Simulated scan of single mutants.
Amino acid sequence: MSLAAGLQGFTQAGLAGFNSVLHQMVDNGKLANVVSLVSHHGQIVNRDAYGVLDISAVPTVPAQTDSIFRIASMTKPITGAAMMILWEEGKWKLDDPVAKHIPEFKDLQVMTTGTPSTVAQGTPMTMDQLMSHTAGFGRSGEYTNANITLRDGDLQAMIDVLAQHPLYYQPGKEWRYGPSVDIQGYLVEKLSHQSLDVFFRERLFTPLRMPDTGFWVPPADAARVSRIHTYDANRTLIPAGARNTVVTSKPTFLAGGGGLMSTVTDYWRFAQMILNGGELDGVRILQPETVKLMHTDVLEPGVEVTLYSPDTKGLGFGLDFAILEDPGLAKTNQGVGSFYWGGAFGTWFWIDPVNELIVIGFIQNLDGTTPDGAPDVREASAKAIYAALEGNKTTSRL
Rank of each mutant, 00 (worst) to 15 (best):
residue 378 R to T: 15
residue 240 A to P: 02
residue 345 F to M: 15
residue 226 S to N: 03
residue 58 V to D: 15
residue 231 Y to Q: 10
residue 39 S to I: 02
residue 330 A to V: 15
residue 281 D to S: 01
residue 173 K to E: 12
residue 196 L to S: 00
residue 193 H to L: 03
residue 192 S to A: 06
residue 287 Q to W: 13
residue 307 L to I: 09
residue 229 H to W: 04
residue 281 D to G: 04
residue 77 P to Q: 06
residue 171 P to N: 06
residue 26 V to R: 08
residue 142 E to K: 12
residue 83 M to R: 00
residue 99 A to E: 09
residue 64 Q to M: 09
residue 239 P to I: 10
residue 371 P to G: 08
residue 26 V to S: 03
residue 97 P to R: 04
residue 325 E to D: 14
residue 296 T to Y: 04
residue 91 K to Y: 08
residue 262 S to E: 02
residue 7 L to R: 04
residue 105 F to C: 03
residue 324 L to N: 09
residue 88 E to I: 02
residue 122 G to N: 10
residue 169 Y to L: 12
residue 225 V to M: 00
residue 180 S to E: 06
residue 101 H to T: 04
residue 286 L to P: 03
residue 14 G to T: 10
residue 153 G to M: 06
residue 230 T to H: 01
residue 100 K to G: 10
residue 218 P to D: 15
residue 173 K to V: 13
residue 296 T to E: 04
residue 362 F to K: 10
residue 269 R to C: 08
residue 317 F to N: 08
residue 120 A to P: 13
residue 199 F to D: 06
residue 121 Q to R: 00
residue 376 D to G: 13
residue 152 D to S: 15
residue 134 T to S: 08
residue 182 D to W: 10
residue 4 A to W: 08
residue 353 P to F: 12
residue 190 K to M: 00
residue 187 L to Y: 01
residue 75 T to D: 01
residue 89 E to M: 10
residue 197 D to F: 09
residue 335 G to M: 12
residue 397 R to E: 10
residue 152 D to Q: 15
residue 150 L to M: 14
residue 339 F to I: 14
residue 35 V to H: 01
residue 184 Q to L: 03
residue 58 V to W: 15
residue 240 A to K: 00
residue 137 F to T: 11
residue 378 R to E: 15
residue 381 S to I: 10
residue 373 G to V: 14
residue 358 I to S: 03
residue 233 A to P: 14
residue 376 D to M: 12
residue 97 P to T: 09
residue 230 T to K: 09
residue 367 D to H: 11
residue 196 L to P: 01
residue 7 L to A: 02
residue 360 I to F: 09
residue 337 G to S: 05
residue 274 I to C: 05
residue 48 D to P: 12
residue 206 T to Q: 07
residue 245 T to W: 01
residue 175 W to R: 07
residue 244 N to L: 07
residue 158 M to F: 11
residue 394 T to Q: 06
residue 236 T to C: 09
residue 13 A to Q: 07
residue 55 I to Q: 06
